[in-house]
Computed example of a mutant assay.
Amino acid sequence: MKSIADYVALEPEYYQNILDNYQTLFTQHIDLSKIKQLNSIVIFATGSSSNAAYGARSLMSKILKVPVYIEDPSIAANYLHYSDPNTLYFAISQGGESYSTIHLVEEFIKNNQTIYTLTSNPNSPLYKVSNHVLSMGIPIEEMPYVSAGYSVTILDLILISLVIAQKNGNLNEQQFNSYLDQLQKVTHLLPKVIEQSQMWVNQYQNQFYHAKRVIFIGYGATYGVAREGETKFTETVRNTAFGKELEEYMHGPYLGLHEDDHIVFLEPHGQLAQRANLLKVFLDKYVKNVSTIYANNSNNLKEEDLCLNVDIDELYASLFMTVPVHLLSYQVSRLKGHNLEKSTYPEFDEITSSKIKRI
């Protein structure tokens, strides 16, 4: 079975293949004929799929010029009502086995509503119940703790947004190609990002091995990265981790900080960079371990920081800034002696029916 690190190493290849085939994957399958004027996008997802949606959300909204909402499929299916004919709905489940997502899609179809599902598994229950399926463009990820699938979901959502914007006339050819050029730039630089990230993780993994609690803080596109840090570190290291949006952390959670917290800022050099710097000034007075992963170079670099040297707009940061987070989670889990190929609680799905293997 491939490891998380193996799948991270495959991301440049996966990205390029999707960029080469986005028209087959998405353009041919998205129909806007019933949309008079696009009002919004609603994405239903949980776990890493939800984190990825938050990573893509800012750029999607910029491209489409409409709000992009991310909803929990369980709450949506059981307690909320959706009926806007000018809203596009998407449900994401990489493995296609999430009970709540399958149930939501079934409810949409029962009500004769259109919902697009994004999955990598053509044999999954989600694929079978869906009437509008979009392939993620990658093979099924064998490792239960997804890494490449998370990153690919971000790229897929951005490309889906570009296709929609092209179809409804929001982007001309020149604008469309300009976005594609930026995606190609990230793909080209990704091997170097992986190399730099690996060196940083090798140097600092022992610090995180001893950490009692890790807090990831991001904003904009890196809010999704912070959320994924919480998810993956909790899943693999099996230690307490939190992923917070910058302002969210500053409005309450900071009061629960501990001197021995390990706080990781995810800095895309964006609109809230100065706000993040002010928070770091405060935290440095009370917390021993505060580090920053920067998308590009910084004038305030500390020894424990990481610069990924990708000079690009902040809205693309989620496409590459999770690489060190995934590698860190993986290597610290190995130091802890955890076997990620085996379920920690094999009876969980049997008891809760959280995953549906077949219909």
Rank of each mutant, 00 (worst) to 15 (best):
T87L: 06
T101I: 06
A226G: 02
S329G: 10
F26Q: 00
Y219E: 09
Y7V: 00
N123P: 06
I263T: 06
T101K: 03
A76M: 02
P324M: 04
L279W: 08
A91S: 13
P85A: 04
N177A: 14
N299Q: 15
L183R: 01
R238E: 08
E228Y: 06
N121P: 07
Q198M: 09
N131K: 15
N39T: 06
L308V: 04
R358Q: 14
L32N: 01
F282A: 12
Y99G: 05
G220E: 05
D311E: 13
T240C: 11
S354A: 13
N299G: 15
F348E: 04
T234L: 10
A76R: 05
L64P: 07
G149Y: 03
Q203T: 15
N239S: 10
V186I: 13
L59I: 13
S354D: 03
L10W: 12
L272Q: 13
L327T: 01
E230D: 07
Q174H: 11
E314Q: 14
K232E: 04
S318M: 05
N277A: 15
G337W: 14
L10Q: 15
K285R: 15
E350W: 01
Y249Q: 02
P73W: 00
E11Y: 12
L171M: 07
V264T: 08
P73L: 02
Q23E: 13
Q207L: 15
S178K: 11
K244A: 10
G96F: 03
T24R: 12
K232V: 01
G169M: 05
P125Y: 07
I102G: 03
T101R: 02
P268Q: 00
